[in-house]
């Protein structure tokens, strides 16, 4: 299912979301071999981070609660994996970056561009490092504006997408701030929360970090609504993500206005094969309604 996005051509509108199977080239290659259109690396910053101790990812009835804590091998090591991936695959690779400070975003982006990723996704909305970083930059319009300008300055020809969460002063308003400051796309949304689960016998929170971001089916309605609102408020394209598990969820995202749809937690429920299954489902939907491509129904719910 050929899909155009910005200046890119993808074999599918589906993208591997950041934080899932995106640590290494071999892992991302395997996802592309299962019909994923593009892959996003695990978020990285300047220095290597261990992240939070385990348990860092725990399932509950309607999704996952995670506080991995932005573990990553550091930007210089992370771009080696992007370079390796580009040697073994033609699929676009998106570099997900973050910083502990606004300035660090610029420095990490400088390193990221060396590997020439097809897009830089700027994570300003991770909800599980509040204890360390405080309020996410993505909740503060001035900070988000500054980070967007900084990364755009460094990125050159490489398009930049800002990954926003559903919190803060409103995602539609924040998306507008990004657009006004030069962003080429919006990724909506990050995990939701933070949330908490408590073990009733130990009588303590299960996550070592106590709180973490919620993903999976539980957050699909929040994600669909967020994409819908962003689509109304900006004209740059949207990578819709959050709780997409089945093809019907992906179709909802596209009807709300997403140009691409990212999957992460779905791999837990449906296996790596989930990309094949959702592609097939979307194809059947196109045929049923007589559409030629997903562009024919994008934003159709408005």
């Amino acid at each position: 299912m050929k899909t155009n996005f910005l200046n890119l051509q993808l074999n599918s509108p589906l993208v591997l979301a950041s934080g899932i199977l995106g640590l290494t080239a071999s892992s991302m290659k395997r996802v592309v071999d299962n019909s994923c259109g593009a892959v996003t690396t695990k978020s990285f910053n300047l220095e290597a981070r261990k992240g939070h101790p385990n348990p860092s990812i725990v399932p509950f009835e309607h999704g996952l609660l995670n506080a991995v804590g932005l573990s990553n091998p550091g930007a210089e090591e992370a771009i080696k994996e992007i370079e390796r991936f580009k040697q073994v695959s033609d699929a676009p690779v998106f570099a997900s970056i973050f910083g502990r400070t606004i300035d660090e975003y610029g420095k990490v982006a400088e390193i990221a561009v060396k590997a020439k990723p097809h897009l830089i996704e700027v994570n300003v909305s991770c909800p599980n490092v509040r204890s360390e970083f405080g309020t996410p930059f993505g909740d503060v319009p001035e900070d988000t504006a500054a980070i967007t300008r900084l990364v755009k300055q460094v990125a050159g020809d490489i398009p930049v997408s800002i990954k926003l969460g559903p919190h803060g002063p409103g995602i539609a308003r924040m998306a507008k701030v990004c657009e006004e400051n030069g962003a080429d796309a919006i990724t909506a949304i990050n995990t939701v929360g933070p949330g908490m689960l408590i073990d009733i016998n130990v009588q303590k929170p299960v996550l070592s970090n106590k709180t973490g971001g919620v993903s999976g089916p539980a957050i699909l309605p929040i994600a669909v609504k967020s994409v819908y609102e962003v689509y109304k408020n900006v004209s740059i394209p949207i990578i819709g993500t959050g709780g997409v598990t089945h093809w019907q969820d992906a179709v909802q995202m596209i009807l709300a206005g997403a140009s691409l749809v990212s999957l992460g937690t779905a791999v837990y429920y449906e296996g790596i094969d989930v990309f094949n299954k959702i592609n097939m489902g979307i194809q059947t939907y196109l045929e049923k309604f007589g559409y030629e491509s997903i562009e024919d129904f994008r934003g159709g719910a408005h």
Partner: peptide, 15 residues
Amino acid sequence: KCGIGICGQCVLDDS
């Protein structure tokens, strides 16, 4: 980390 096949931490190169 996760034990459920999503985090990518235990993926073996180059397989």
